[in-house]
C-alpha cells in the first residue's frame, strides 16, 4: 500500500496490522527517550489547508518520534478561495523531496487527486478531506475500542458501536462505518433524518433516530461534534432541541451497559452533543484517543514508508 486515502483501502488484515504495529509503537512512548530511528532522513510534510491544530500536532509528533524531518505547510486558502492551487503546492513539495504528504483539505477527494494526478511521487495520507473521510481517526478509534473492549487483540468482531450526531457532514463517521465494519463490529448511526447522508440505508450499518433505544445495546458510543450553525440551514430547529433529543447527558449515559465507553473525536461542544459531566466522567476516553492517535499515525507512516516490524 502506498497511500492511505480511505478506510475502504484497508482489508481486515491491513487494519489489524496497523493496530498491532501501533500497540508496539505505543510502548516507545512509555520510554524515557521517545524516539525511533526508523524514518531518519525521510521527509514528511504536513499540508494543512484547514486549521486543525490537534490533528497536525498529532501527525507531527508521530513523524518526529520516528525521526523523520517534518515540515508544516499551512496553506492558507485553497484554490477554492483563489490562493495557490493544490497542483502548484504539490509540485513545490515534490521539488523539495517529500516522502510523504499528510493532507488536510476542505474539499472532498483532494487527497485522492493528490495521489492520482501524477503531481507527486510520495505517499499521501488523508488527514481529513471535506465531508468525505478521516481514516486515521477511524484507526485511532478502533485502537481505543480494542484496547478497552477486546482482551485478545485482533479485530473488533462482536462489538456494537453507536455513532451519534452530524453524520451528514462527518468524515469521521464515514471512515468509522467502513473501518469498524471491516474489523467485524456492528455500527448503528443515530441522528435526526436531516443529518443522515442521502442513501445511508444502503451503507453497511444500521440507522436509528432514537438514541435512547440504541444505547442499552452498545459497547461504545461515539458522539460527533454538531455545529450550532447547522440550525440556520434548518437541519434542526434549535441547539436546545438537538441537545434534548440527541445529546449525551448523565441520565442517558446510565442507559449504557456497565462496560460501555464514550468516545468523541474532538473538539467537543460541551452542552451541545455531550454534557460536561459525561465528558469528564471515567467512561469518557477522549484523552486516550488523543494519545492513541499518535501511535496509530506512527504505525501508518511506518508501514507506508516501508518500515519493518522487527525494527521497533
Amino acid at each position: 500500500m502506498r497511500h492511505l486515502l480511505s478506510a475502504a483501502d484497508l482489508t481486515r488484515d491491513d487494519a489489524v496490522l496497523i493496530l498491532d504495529t501501533a500497540a508496539e509503537l505505543a510502548a516507545v512512548t512509555d520510554r524515557s527517550v521517545k524516539k525511533l530511528p526508523t524514518l531518519r532522513g525521510r521527509t514528511v510534510v504536513n499540508l494543512f489547508f484547514e486549521d486543525s491544530t490537534r490533528t497536525r500536532i498529532s501527525f507531527e509528533l508521530a513523524a518526529k518520534r520516528l525521526s523523520a524531518d517534518v515540515i508544516n505547510f499551512a496553506a492558507k486558502g485553497s484554490s477554492v478561495s483563489k490562493g495557490e492551487s493544490l497542483k502548484d503546492t504539490a509540485l513545490t513539495l515534490e521539488a523539495m523531496g517529500a516522502d510523504a504528504v499528510v493532507i488536510r483539505h476542505g474539499a472532498s477527494g483532494a487527497p485522492h487527486r493528490l495521489a492520482t494526478s501524477g503531481w507527486i511521487q510520495g505517499s499521501v495520507i488523508n488527514a481529513g478531506d471535506g465531508t468525505h473521510e478521516h481514516p486515521t481517526q477511524a484507526l485511532l478509534d478502533a485502537f481505543t475500542l480494542r484496547d478497552h473492549l477486546k482482551e485478545a487483540g485482533g479485530d473488533l468482531a462482536g462489538l456494537r458501536v453507536a455513532i451519534v450526531g452530524d453524520i451528514l457532514h462527518s468524515r469521521v463517521a464515514r471512515s468509522n462505518v467502513l473501518l469498524l465494519r471491516t474489523l467485524g463490529a456492528e455500527v448503528v448511526l443515530v441522528a435526526p433524518p436531516t443529518l443522515m447522508p442521502f442513501g445511508v440505508e444502503s451503507w453497511p450499518c444500521e440507522v436509528s433516530y432514537d438514541i435512547d433505544d440504541v444505547l442499552p445495546g452498545v459497547d461504545a458510543v461515539m458522539m460527533l461534534r454538531v455545529q450550532a450553525e447547522r440550525m440556520k440551514a434548518a437541519y434542526f430547529p434549535s441547539a436546545l432541541e438537538y441537545s434534548r433529543m440527541f445529546g449525551l447527558d448523565v441520565a442517558r449515559m446510565s442507559r449504557l451497559p456497565e462496560h460501555a465507553i464514550v468516545l468523541h473525536p474532538g473538539p467537543m461542544n460541551r452542552g451541545m452533543e455531550i454534557s460536561a459531566d459525561v465528558a469528564d466522567s471515567p467512561r469518557a476516553v477522549m484523552v486516550e484517543q488523543v494519545a492513541n492517535g499518535v501511535s496509530v499515525r506512527m504505525a501508518v507512516m511506518y508501514l507506508l514508508l516501508g518500515g519493518r516490524q522487527e525494527e521497533i
Binding site: 465531508t131 464515514r174 442513501g199
Partner: peptide, 18 residues
C-alpha cells in the same frame, strides 16, 4: 451542489444535486 444526489454522493462526501 457538486454531483448527482445519490448513495454515491453520500459516500464521496460531495454535496448532492437532487
Amino acid at each position: 451542489a457538486q454531483m448527482n444526489e445519490s448513495e454515491l454522493s453520500g459516500r464521496l462526501g460531495l454535496v448532492g444535486w437532487p
